[in-house]
């Protein structure tokens, strides 16, 4: 069994380590230090944690003001509120004004499960990747979270990071393999050129599991972890398209505007590659645990493998 870890815990540990060395690094929370796994940060560096109260718009703009004055703020809020309630603050005060704010969207996607659609962020990628001058990341395991944090604490660029809630099994065995630089995706399994499965964040494991099932059925798949939704690794996607001409994207996001859309937009001009977008349909998500909901919508390895086999054999 692989090890697993909560990405939020890793981010907190890395942020504490960096903030101890650089007092300009700040964590902003919106009554969310617990769910952001920031209690250790609050205990270790109370003067570098700024509590904004339940006011996500205010947090983003205050972070922009802090960044403009030389601070390196990491603004933590539930991803749904951070990206949707505060979208104008993100667009104007962070991206457009080019302030070095790191927007840390916790409990992303369907993480809040039974708390319902007010708390889901299944449109955050569509929103954030349409904003100029904003990088967008989705770490898939603890190694990638660690490597990404090493980049983020020294980067001067606005970025949004979507972080899930549950512990994620290790995908990688080293930080160097997990994340190198903005706009670089990873081929994490390469069984052949029948099809490529493209994922990011929590669905990377789904893609790996899907590839394993396909292998048993004689279908050789590649698995791509994009990690950097924006900038997008279009070189890698084109290489994979050259080899497979068939791509399945798997995301914890609406099928509109997210990872699948990004891949399709990048590859559409080629005219020779089919992109099958798997994600949440255009409806309020059904209630359930993350696994139950993924299964219901066919965002699970068995369903995706079956769907892929059907498409390849027809």
């Amino acid at each position: 069994m692989p090890n697993s870890a909560k990405v939020g815990d890793i981010i907190c540990t890395e942020l504490i380590a960096a903030a101890k060395k650089d007092r300009n690094i700040l964590a902003l929370t919106t009554d969310s230090r617990g769910s952001a796994s920031l209690n250790p940060f609050a205990r270790a560096l109370p003067d570098q944690l700024i509590e904004i109260g339940i006011a996500e718009q205010n947090s983003v703009t205050i972070a922009a003001g802090l960044a403009h004055s030389g601070k390196r703020p990491f603004a933590f809020s539930p991803a749904a509120f951070l990206t949707m309630r505060s979208v104008e603050q993100v667009k104007d005060d962070v991206a457009y004004s080019n302030t070095n704010v790191k927007l840390m969207g916790i409990s992303g996607g369907n993480s809040y499960s039974y708390l319902g659609n007010t708390h889901h962020s299944l449109q955050d990628l569509a929103i954030t990747r349409a904003i100029p001058n904003l990088e967008v990341y989705m770490p898939a395991d603890q190694f990638q979270a660690r490597a990404l944090m090493h980049y983020l604490v020294q980067s001067e660029h606005p970025a949004y990071v979507r972080i899930g809630k549950r512990a994620l099994a290790d995908i990688y065995t080293s930080e160097a393999a997990a994340f190198q630089r903005p706009g670089q995706g990873n081929v994490i399994a390469d069984h052949g050129n029948d099809i490529a499965l493209v994922a990011a964040g929590e669905t990377v494991q789904v893609a790996l599991d899907t590839a394993a099932i396909l292998t048993q059925q004689g279908i050789r798949a590649q698995v791509i972890d994009l990690v950097s939704i924006k900038p997008l690794d279009t070189d890698l996607l084109n290489r994979v398209a050259d080899q497979t001409h068939r791509i399945v994207t798997i995301e914890e996001h609406s099928i509109y505007g997210g990872l699948g859309s990004a891949v399709a937009e990048a590859l559409a001009p080629r005219g020779d590659t089919k992109v099958d977008i798997i994600g949440f349909p255009d409806e309020p998500a059904i209630a359930g645990t993350q696994d139950e909901v993924f299964n219901y919508y066919g965002i699970d390895a068995d369903d995706i493998a079956a769907r892929t086999v059907r498409q390849l054999t027809h």
Partner: peptide
């Protein structure tokens, strides 16, 4: 900083003032 959409300047200024205090 870029402004225009109303209701942003005071929060930007709070951030700048807070940084000055820190």
């Amino acid at each position: 900083l870029n402004t225009g959409s109303l209701g942003h300047g005071l929060a930007l200024s709070v951030g700048i003032a807070k940084a000055g205090k820190l």
